[in-house]
């Protein structure tokens, strides 16, 4: 099989130039020369005896259901506000007159693009929806494969731009969290309190923040791109930041899922309250806090 019957490594043969000028295949071996038994195995073919199909199935269900919910919620175009709560799907709330459909779509492309190009979600949906591969050492449905080379998948490389936009979004979302603490009496006076929605929005945003902080692109920009920390300008702090983000990054998958659940739940909660299905419980109230500072409350709202 091997094209080099001498089984000899001749190093004089070919060293790639340091900067390869044009396309140069990694190995200079003809296609198909090193074919093993795994090539062209049918979909699902494996000797694995465990339940390898469970994970992709669970992922497909999870992503599918949450995705469906988000789409439905975005299309609804109503019930995204309840008092001082704003669904994260609709934040910041932009309602230009010329926009014909749900305001969610003005915003939602950012989180969708951010998650869609996220290194973790890529893994999840390539496995769950494209079966590329559905699990390790399991045959695949399609022969042809280009990975992330060329259109459209090369667009994944713009993940960092979605990260920039998502970071801006986070500022607005934190604003919503603050607002979720400030309730209004029927007489128009404000007071501070913690309701069910407050917690839901706070949790969703805290997890979104962790998710964003643990992003691979952020980790790269903060310090990962350096070869030598101690030789770089501000290398010390950058190394510190990089290693902290790296520690978070190890849990990126967890944050990806939890933040997704939490955001959907926050929207669901607000929506249900708005539709009158849930009654929003009030856990703590600080009634008189704003009595002395009406200006602040005015400014905040």
């Amino acid at each position: 099989m091997s094209p080099e019957p001498q089984r000899k490594l001749s190093s004089s043969a070919g060293v790639a130039p340091a900067a390869a000028p044009s396309y140069r295949p990694a190995t200079c071996t003809p296609p198909g020369a090193w074919r093993g038994a795994g090539y062209g195995q049918p979909f699902g073919a494996t000797e694995r005896t465990d339940t390898w199909w469970l994970m992709p199935l669970a992922q497909a269900l999870g992503l599918g259901l949450l995705g469906l919910y988000a789409t439905w919620a975005a299309f609804q175009g109503a019930h995204y506000e309840f008092g001082n709560y704003l669904s994260p799907f609709y934040s910041p709330l932009l309602k230009p007159a010329w926009w014909p459909i749900s305001p969610a779509f003005l915003i939602l492309w950012i989180p969708a693009g951010f998650r869609g190009t996220c290194y973790y979600y890529r893994k999840a949906y390539y496995r769950a929806f494209f079966a590329d591969p559905s699990a390790c050492a399991v045959g695949e449905p399609r022969k042809g494969y280009r990975g992330e080379v060329g259109f459209p998948w090369a667009i994944q490389n713009l993940h960092r731009y979605f990260m920039y936009f998502a970071s801006i979004l986070l500022v607005f979302l934190w604003w919503d969290v603050i607002r979720a603490f400030i309730f209004t009496d029927p007489d128009g006076s404000h007071y501070l309190a913690i309701g069910g929605g407050t917690l839901a929005i706070l949790a969703s945003n805290a997890l979104l923040t962790m998710y964003s902080l643990s992003c691979h692109s952020l980790r790269h920009l903060v310090g990962g791109k350096l070869d030598c920390f101690s030789c770089a300008v501000a290398g010390g702090p950058r190394h510190g930041a990089w290693s902290r983000l790296s520690a978070l990054n190890a849990h990126h998958m967890g944050y990806a899922w939890w933040s997704l659940f939490a955001v959907c739940f926050a929207d669901f909660y607000v929506r249900m309250c708005s539709m009158g299905v849930f009654h929003d419980p009030m856990f703590v109230t600080f009634r008189h806090l704003f009595d002395y500072a009406p200006k602040i409350s005015h400014f905040l709202l």
């Binding site: 089984r7 000899k8 490594l9 001749s10 190093s11 004089s12 060293v15």
Partner: peptide, 9 residues
Amino acid sequence: VHQGLDVYM
């Protein structure tokens, strides 16, 4: 291997 040996494995 970058220097010009022939390796027989």
